[in-house]
Design a protein around this nucleic acid. Structure first.
Length: 185
DNA sequence: GGAACGATCTGC
DNA sequence: CAGATCGTTCCC
């Protein structure tokens, strides 16, 4: 169980996004396996970094492994892993994790509502990730960590269009673990 | 200064 | 399917 390799985060967001599947997200006592991600490269009109750096998206332009947390719809936080070299503005949105530890805490934070972390805002609520963790480093001791327990990314991730955006809708940059199967992957 | 719009979630 | 709810962005 080691922190994710920082060098592996440097690359096109649509390549790093599926690679992040099966990595572990850790915040306090809560642990979850990443099962769904979305890529947001800087040249993409749907990316927050598309129109350059602002006070809000500054963390996106930080070094790879930086956590970018943003507030939206007046009530939700969403978390991203900065990918690519410093200054580029590429990130991968964490859309869903499978809770592995800290289930009771997550359940309480979610107000007793189930599923605990199957959406970008739900997982932030379950893991108590908010603006205070923005721009922190996921690969050193910080409020949120990204770890590799040796589970490889899926050989053939499920691909599809991203969700909740109005630009670049057709680009298939959402990635998920394939459905569990008894047959070999 | 003001208006429009979200990388969402929930309940009806 | 619409409301919640407010920061950010963009236009005048």
């Amino acid at each position: 169980m080691t922190p994710v390799d920082r060098a592996a985060l440097v690359g096109p967001a649509p390549v790093v996004a599926p690679w992040l599947l099966n990595k572990l997200l850790v915040a306090g006592d809560c642990v979850g396996r990443i099962v769904e991600t979305e890529a947001y490269p800087p040249e993409d009109p749907a990316s927050h970094s598309f129109r350059g750096m602002t006070a809000r998206n500054a963390a996106m332009f930080g070094p790879p492994g930086t956590l970018y947390v943003y507030f939206t719809y007046g009530m939700h936080w969403c978390a991203n892993v900065v990918t690519g070299p410093e200054g580029e503005g590429a990130a991968v949105l964490l859309r869903a994790v499978e809770p592995l530890a800290g289930l009771e805490l997550m359940h309480a934070r979610r107000g007793g509502r189930g599923p605990l972390a199957d959406g970008p805002a739900k997982l932030c609520q379950a893991f108590a990730i908010d603006g205070s963790a923005n721009a922190s480093d996921l690969l050193s001791n910080g409020p949120v960590g990204l770890f590799d327990d040796g589970t490889p990314p899926p050989r053939r991730p499920r691909r599809g269009p991203r969700i909740g955006i109005s630009k670049s809708v057709a680009v298939p940059w959402r990635f998920r673990l394939p459905a569990p199967s008894k047959l070999a992957r």
